[in-house]
Design a protein around this nucleic acid. Structure first.
Lengths: 138, 138
DNA sequence: GCTTGACTTGGATCGAGTCCAATGTAGGGT
DNA sequence: ACCCTACATTGGACTCGATCCAAGTCAAGC
C-alpha cells in the first residue's frame, strides 16, 4: 500500500538489504508484529539478518515517525505501521490480539486545564481492554 | 487514610509480617512506587524480606483490587494504591513522574459500537504524556 | 573503483519479573 | 496452650525482551 520504501529513500535513509527487508515486512500486512515476529519474517527473505539489526531498524523507523511502538502489556513491544492516521488500540485480555480503533472526539480534550498540573500535555494514549469474539466463545 | 490493613484482614487475607509491611508501604504515601522501591522501603522495616515475597504480595493486592498496576513505559511496573476511585495517569516524558488525573466523561463512552468489532470491552486506560513543570524549566 | 563513515553481527549483558524446592509459620481445631 | 497443615517465604536460578559492544562489512559520494 503506502510506499514506505520510497518515503524512506527520499528522506535520505541509507538503504541496506537488511533495512529494506524490515521495511517491507512492516509495509506488507497491517498487523501488529513483535520485534521477534518481524525478525522471523525478515529471515525468510534474508537468512543472515540478525536480531540486533532488526531492533536497530525498528528503532529508527519509530524515531522517523513511520512506525508506532505499542506496548499493551509486559510482553514484547509491537510495531504498528499505521502511523499516518491517529488511532487508539483495542486489546484482547485473553489472547493479546490488537485492533486499531477510532474513538470519537479528541481524548486530549477530556483533560481539563485544572487537571494538567502545569504539565505541557502533548499526547493521550488510550488502550481499550476487553475480550475478543474468538476468546469469548472459546 | 484508607485502612487497607483492616480491609485485607476482613477479606481473610492471611496476614504475615511481610505482607503487613508491604501493605503499610503502599498505604503510606500515595506515590507510584516500583516493585523495587516497595522492596527497598519494606527492607527498612523488615530487613530479611525478599524480593520474591514483595512480588507475590503486590500481585495479590492487585488481584484483590486493592492496588492498580500501572505500566507507562518499558521500565518497571508501578503500583498505585489509589484503586478506590477511577482515574487516569499523566506521565512526564522526561523524568517519568506520574500524577493521577481525572478527565471529564467516561473514556469508554468514546468508543462507538461499530468500533468494537465484537469485543466485550470492559475498560479504557488513558495515559496522557507531556513534560512536567520541573523538566520544562530544567 | 576507493574511501570512509555508517551499518551489521552475534555474543555478552542487563533489568524486570517468574519459578521452584526447601523451609518457616498463621491460625483453626481440639 | 499446643499441634497440624495448608499456605507463605526464601534466594538463587532462570526466562524473556531488549540493549551494548568491538570487530567486520558495505552504501554511496567523489
Amino acid at each position: 500500500m503506502s510506499d514506505l520504501l520510497a518515503r524512506l529513500r527520499v528522506r535520505g535513509w541509507r538503504m541496506t538489504a537488511q533495512r529494506r527487508v524490515v521495511a517491507e515486512v512492516l509495509d506488507g500486512d497491517h498487523v501488529h508484529l513483535t520485534a521477534d515476529e518481524v525478525h522471523a519474517r525478515a529471515v525468510k527473505r534474508l537468512p543472515e539478518i540478525s536480531r540486533a539489526t532488526v531492533y536497530n531498524a525498528l528503532g529508527e523507523l519509530v524515531s522517523l515517525g513511520e512506525v508506532l511502538e505499542v506496548s499493551t502489556d509486559r510482553r514484547a513491544k509491537r510495531y504498528d505501521p499505521n502511523a499516518h492516521r491517529p488511532h487508539q488500540h483495542l486489546v484482547c485480555a485473553r489472547c493479546g490480539a490488537i485492533r486499531d480503533v477510532h474513538p470519537v472526539g479528541d481524548p486530549l480534550a477530556a483533560l481539563p486545564q485544572a487537571e494538567r498540573f502545569g504539565f505541557t500535555v502533548s499526547e493521550a494514549e488510550v488502550t481499550y481492554r476487553g475480550v475478543c469474539p474468538g476468546c469469548v466463545t472459546a
